[in-house]
Each structure stands twice: as structure tokens, then as C-alpha cells.
Simulated assay, not measured.
Amino acid sequence: MKQVWIPLIGGLIFVYACTTNKVTGKKQLNIISSAQMLSLSETQYKQVLQQSKLITGTAHAKKVAEIGKRIAAAVTKYYNDQGMQAEMATYKWEYNLIDSKEVNAWCMPGGKIAVYTGLLPVTKNDDALAVVMGHEVAHALAEHGKQRIHQQLGTELAALGLQGMMAGKPQQTQAAFMTAFGAASTLGVILPFSRKQELEADKLGLQFAAMAGYNPEEAIPLWQRMGELSKGNKPPEFASTHPAEETRIAELQKQMPEAKKLYLSTKGK
């Protein structure tokens, strides 16, 4: 009976715990609530800040805060214009620059942004930095972190179902099937899903940066520099959580005309 009940339970969870994300318009599971994610992110953000060396009062720190505030204002206006004020009510924006050689930035649910100093030599200018920060804000607004948690839960549920169906088979056969399932779920589901999220964040982030008055065209040379930085020391795209730089650039070029319209609209204000 186990192999029957597990897929049935999974199906019921999908039907009754599905919501529509307001920024992407896509259906997504809602087993973990947004309120729970906000609480977790605030706790984690405080822990990261406590364990990190923060850069404050410098020109770079002020620039990160300025760009963050402009993106937050643009996003808030966009949500308000769409009648989605409630979606922004829980956002308490914070912007911090962390002293680290890591080329990274991120935004937790609720608008908790962190930029690492190692990213600044790669972005080189305000517009490129705004593209990166817009990308990270897009991850938070699209609730990509919550989606990944739900995906992991779904994969584990499917694995339990497979174990139930394999009950009674020789141990060696069971092990072979579970190993194959793990590889297939990673390469066929988890990694493509992650790459899709990255491209979605690229698109939304480009728009957010443009709406904040930053030139979206800087995204192209930015990702060219990112590609040079990796120097080919990356796994092939199908085995990576992130798209290849060439893929990102091609997709960004498709989005550029619309982003440029948004950018030019801010110049007349």
C-alpha cells in the first residue's frame, strides 16, 4: 500500500497547497508559508552579519545602499501600480557590504541584501552592480528559495515512493535503481530547475535595474567579465546550477529592448 499512498499524498499536497506568485504569475507550492520564510531569513541574515566583517561609511558601502534603495523604491512603485501593496508590506529592506574576496551578492526574502567586496572589481560601475543587485532581489520576489525547498521535498517524496515500489527486490537491484534515480533527478530536474530560476532572475533583475534608472546594457559586458573570471574552470552547463555565460548573454540580449524602454522612461522624469 505504501507505493500507492505516497504518490496520492504528493498529489493532494500539490492540489491544495498551490498558489500563484504575484511577480512571475506562475503557480508554485506553498507548503512553507511566506511568513515562515521571512522569519527564517531575518534570523539567518542577522547571523551572517554577526559573523562577517561589515564595511560601513565608505564610498563603496554608501553606493551599495544607494543602489539598493533605488531598486527597492522602483520595485515598491511597480507593486503599488499593480495593486499589490500588500506584497511589499512585509519587506524591511537592508543593504550591507561584507568584506570578502568572494564574488557574490544575495538577497533574502524580506529585502535583506548583502554584497561582497570581491564583486566590486568585476562589476566596475554602478549600472553593472545594479544589474546584479536587481537579479538577487528578483530571486527573493519570485520566492525561488522557497521553490527549491519544495522541490527538495518533492524529490524526497518521489524517492520514498520508488523505495516502496522496489520493496521485495534484491538489495543490489534496489541500490542500483536508487542511484540511477538520484542522478536522473539531479541532472533532469534539480539542475535544469535551478538554471531556469537564474534566467528568470536575470530577466526580472534587468527590468528592476532599468526601472531604478540604471543602464541595463551594462549587463552584457558584466557577464562577459564573469565568463573571463571563470577561465573555463566550470562544469558543463547541463551539470551546473547556473547557465553558461553565453546562454545568459543571449537571453539578456532578447530582453534588452524592453529593458531599455524602461530605462529611457526614467530619464524623462
Rank of each mutant, 00 (worst) to 15 (best):
L54P: 00
P121K: 12
Q224D: 08
D99M: 11
D202Q: 01
N104M: 05
H60T: 15
M211D: 05
A74S: 13
S185C: 09
P109G: 10
P236F: 07
K261Y: 01
K112D: 00
L229P: 02
Q44Y: 01
L262E: 13
L187E: 06
L162W: 01
G118E: 03
G227H: 02
T19V: 11
T20Y: 01
G10L: 06
L129G: 10
E143I: 02
H60C: 15
A61Q: 06
T58F: 00
K254A: 08
G111S: 04
F193S: 13
S230R: 10
E136S: 08
K269N: 14
L199C: 03
S34P: 04
L129M: 13
V15A: 06
Q171T: 12
S185D: 05
A17E: 11
T19L: 04
Y214L: 01
G213P: 00
E258I: 09
E237L: 07
G110W: 05
A138P: 01
Q50M: 11
L191W: 00
L206G: 08
L204G: 02
Y78F: 13
G182R: 12
G164I: 03
T117W: 04
K63G: 07
R195I: 15
T266L: 05
K27E: 09
P216F: 03
E237K: 04
K254E: 07
F14W: 15
N215V: 04
R225Q: 05
T43A: 08
H242K: 06
S100G: 10
A17H: 06
Y95A: 12
M256H: 00
Q82K: 11
F14R: 14
Q174M: 14
I32A: 06
L40F: 04
T56A: 09
A209P: 00
S100D: 10
A72L: 08
A61L: 11
E102H: 00
H60F: 13
M166C: 08
